[in-house]
């Protein structure tokens, strides 16, 4: 399923003295199976962008096309289109409300009007996707779980709707390293197994280096760059100019290159750098 964003502009409080342009003429197309990282400073417009992608916000001008259909068009079945795009908000554990984990996860599928049998199957599948044992947790109250577990329940609640595209707004915010690794591993598995297209907003360039196949850099409401992590992280000065970091491996590569070392300019993963550093060391030892 493709998502096409065409000249998207969004203005908050239009017509009032306080109006602010949150998004300004943003265009891009997302193809099936991509893992797109959306990066940008707080207040750059990322969250506004994400909320347009499943129709929670309407563009001031421009369009969002899902499989060629305008998400805000008049004759379109908006609900059906929206359900194909799952959106996980920041701190999603704060939206849990049901008595049991299973019931909470069933909320989305229920709203889709599925049969009880189908809902049950969806709940079980979603729980296994987020590594929560059905027998152990299904009947527990979500409020008894740890923060990391609650977040996984909330994500399962969106997965149970079986969206073709999954959008996550900072899914690892506030988690400790163990909780973060669980979520990231889970997303990797999901992509490998179900070929879900994933869009993830994150501040962690290290996470992006690990997962993303493509990066959208948003700055002051505009699309500042769009490319593979390799392109983005190796373009000197790009990320610093929009107030973002680059992965440490990319930084080390840049430092060594600036001191005259013979390294490819586009290394950004520690394992790539490791090979090249070993090569340098062996070459130096030979002389």
């Amino acid at each position: 399923m493709s998502i096409e964003v065409r000249h998207l502009t969004h203005t908050y409080g239009e017509g009032s003295a306080l109006h602010t342009v949150a998004l300004n003429d943003v265009s891009f197309t997302i193809e099936d199976g991509e893992f797109v990282g959306i990066v940008g400073h707080t207040g750059s417009g990322k969250s506004t962008l994400v909320q347009h992608l499943n129709g929670l916000l309407k563009p001031t001008s421009g369009q969002v096309l899902v499989d060629g259909e305008d998400l805000n068009g008049e004759k379109v079945n908006r609900r059906a289109l929206r359900q194909r795009i799952g959106l996980v908000f920041q701190y999603p554990e704060y939206q849990l409300f049901e008595e049991t984990v299973a019931k909470d996860i069933a909320f989305g599928p229920k709203n889709q009007g599925l049969s009880a049998k189908e809902i049950d199957a969806r709940v079980r599948h979603a729980m296994s996707s987020v590594h929560l044992d059905y027998d152990k947790y299904a009947e527990k109250s979500p409020f008894e779980l740890s923060g990391g577990q609650m977040r996984r329940v909330a994500i399962a609640g969106v997965l149970a709707m079986e969206p073709s595209v999954l959008i996550l707004d900072e899914p690892t915010a506030g988690l400790d390293p163990r909780g973060r690794d669980r979520i990231l591993t889970m997303l990797e598995e999901l992509r490998a197994r179900e070929h879900t297209t994933v869009l993830m907003v994150s501040h962690s360039m290290e996470d992006m280096a690990r997962l993303a196949t493509r990066l959208l850099v948003i700055s002051e409401g505009r699309l500042a760059a769009d490319g593979t992590p390799r392109e983005i992280f190796s373009r000197p000065g790009l990320m610093t100019s929009v107030g973002l970091d680059i992965p440490e491996a990319a930084r080390l590569c840049g430092v060594l290159r600036s001191r005259g070392y013979n390294l490819p300019e586009d290394l950004y993963r520690p394992e790539e750098l490791r090979e090249h550093l070993l090569r340098l060391w062996k070459e130096a030892a030979k002389c």
């Binding site: 080390l252 060594l256 001191r259 070392y261 013979n262 550093l277 340098l280 060391w281």
Partner: peptide
């Protein structure tokens, strides 16, 4: 910075590399 310095120490640049 610290790793870069160590790399420089272990793999000193010679002309030609």
């Amino acid at each position: 910075e610290e790793l870069a310095e160590e790399v420089e120490r272990l793999c000193p640049l010679k002309s030609g590399i």
